[in-house]
Amino acid sequence: MDLSALRVEEVQNVINAMQKILECPICLELIKEPVSTKCDHIFCKFCMLKLLNQKKGPSQCPLCKNDITKRSLQESTRFSQLVEELLKIICAFQLDTGLE
């Protein structure tokens, strides 16, 4: 393996790690329209609304089981920016390397 191939692999590993961190624990995809709970867990807005609409009253956070309500959800613009920038990095990496 030459040096450039090694560096490509390192970049790919970093991108994969970042994708894992920014993954919704419910749908296991890159978070879309991130919302945070009072317990500071981040999920896709759609995933949380789907969870909350399944029953009346408070639901439980899928990660820590604390009570959550629609009102307690906060849009997470910082995470939204992180996801947007990661998508740009992924696109640039794919253009530069031809890898997916």
Rank of each mutant, 00 (worst) to 15 (best):
Q94E: 07
P58L: 13
F79P: 03
L52R: 07
V8I: 04
Q19H: 11
P25H: 05
C61G: 00
I15S: 00
L51I: 12
S80G: 14
K55Q: 06
D67P: 08
K88N: 13
T97I: 04
D40P: 05
V14L: 13
Q19E: 14
L87V: 08
Q54P: 06
K70I: 14
V14G: 09
N66H: 12
C64W: 01
C27P: 01
L28M: 12
K88E: 04
V8L: 10
V83D: 01
K70P: 08
I89N: 07
C27F: 00
G57R: 06
Q81K: 08
M18R: 00
T77R: 13
I15F: 04
L3S: 15
C44R: 01
E85Q: 11
Q12K: 06
A17P: 03
S4T: 06
M48K: 02
Q94P: 03
L73P: 13
L6P: 14
C61R: 00
T77M: 15
E10Q: 11
M48V: 04
I31P: 11
C24Y: 00
E9P: 09
C39G: 01
L51H: 04
N13I: 08
L82P: 00
T69P: 10
K70N: 14
G98C: 08
Q54L: 07
V83I: 09
T97A: 08
V35D: 01
E9K: 08
I21P: 06
T97S: 10
T97K: 04
K38Q: 14
Q12L: 05
H41D: 06
I42P: 03
K45I: 07
G57V: 09
L86Q: 11
S4C: 10
I15P: 01
A92V: 04
E23K: 06
G98V: 04
G98R: 06
C47S: 00
E84D: 05
I42V: 08
F46L: 15
I90V: 09
K38M: 14
K56R: 11
Q54H: 13
P25L: 03
V35I: 12
D67G: 12
Q60R: 12
E23Q: 12
N13P: 08
S72N: 12
E10G: 11
I42M: 03
F93C: 02
S72G: 06
E23P: 01
I15N: 00
D2Y: 11
N16P: 01
F79S: 02
I89S: 08
L95F: 08
N66P: 02
E29A: 11
S80I: 12
F79Y: 12
L3F: 07
S59P: 10
P25R: 11
A17D: 12
L99P: 09
N66D: 14
S72T: 12
N66Y: 12
K88I: 12
K32N: 09
F46V: 13
L30S: 09
L63F: 10
M48L: 05
A92P: 01
F43S: 15
I31V: 08
D2G: 06
G57P: 06
H41P: 00
D67Y: 12
C64G: 01
I21F: 02
Q81H: 13
K65T: 11
C61F: 02
E85K: 03
L51V: 08
Q60P: 10
C39P: 01
K65R: 00
F43C: 05
P34S: 00
I89V: 10
R71P: 15
R71M: 14
P34R: 04
C91F: 07
S76P: 02
L82V: 03
R78G: 05
P58H: 10
Q94R: 04
P34T: 02
C24F: 00
C44S: 00
L95I: 03
T69S: 06
I89T: 10
K45Q: 14
I26V: 15
Q74K: 14
